[in-house]
Amino acid sequence: MDTQVLLSYLPRYLQAFCLTVQIGAIGILIAFFLGMVAAFVLHFQLPILSGIFRFYIELFRNTPLLVQLFFIYFGLPRIGIMIPAQACGALGLGLLGGSYMAESFRSGLDAVSIGQSEAALALGMTNRQLFGFVIFPEAFALSIPSIVANVIFLFKETSVFSAISLMDLMFTAKDLIGLYYDTTEALFLLVIFYVIMILPVSLIGHLIEKKTHDRIFGA
């Protein structure tokens, strides 16, 4: 491996890294809130909305992100909706992630026992207090391991951003290989940067798991 080549590639990879992290983070943030809303709607079986969110979850959980991105990036402009590539990436990731997050949060909500609700109500809490102070925090803590897994999964999914010509890590590697044929160096940096991106997420995730889920419910 040529160190000179590695060093010369570094600035482009760094740029791509920042872009990937940025879009990934925004997408995951969207996924997080979308998932939370969807889980709430499904858990409490709100009329009409339940059907809409059920349809949304099934649609996005059962199609590949690549297809979703193509649809948003190439399909929507046909009906006059133009979205810039970066927003497409974040939106696509958010919609895919939202469907996974919804199921994570929902399993958490469903896992809180009725006894907990009754205990809170017996203490004179209103339904709102019951949800805010008991059901939601408990469900959230229960969902954390699965949310962490989703975040890691979604960061890895960012690799398909290259398909809608976003200059992410994957795009940069393919581009450099196409230009200079330094395959080894380009792929080496690609792996390294993905690890740099996802390993901390994984470690922080485990730390959060320990601090919340494990402390409350045991490992």
């Binding site: 907990q116 017996a122 408990e138």
Partner: peptide
């Protein structure tokens, strides 16, 4: 009316002290 259940039903995400003070503080 106070009620105590067979299955305790303490709030698992709160400490002993927080379990006790939650309702008095919020309700």
């Amino acid at each position: 009316i106070g009620m105590v259940f067979q299955s305790y039903e303490l709030f698992p995400h709160k400490t002993v002290l927080q379990n006790m003070t939650l309702a008095p503080m919020k309700v």
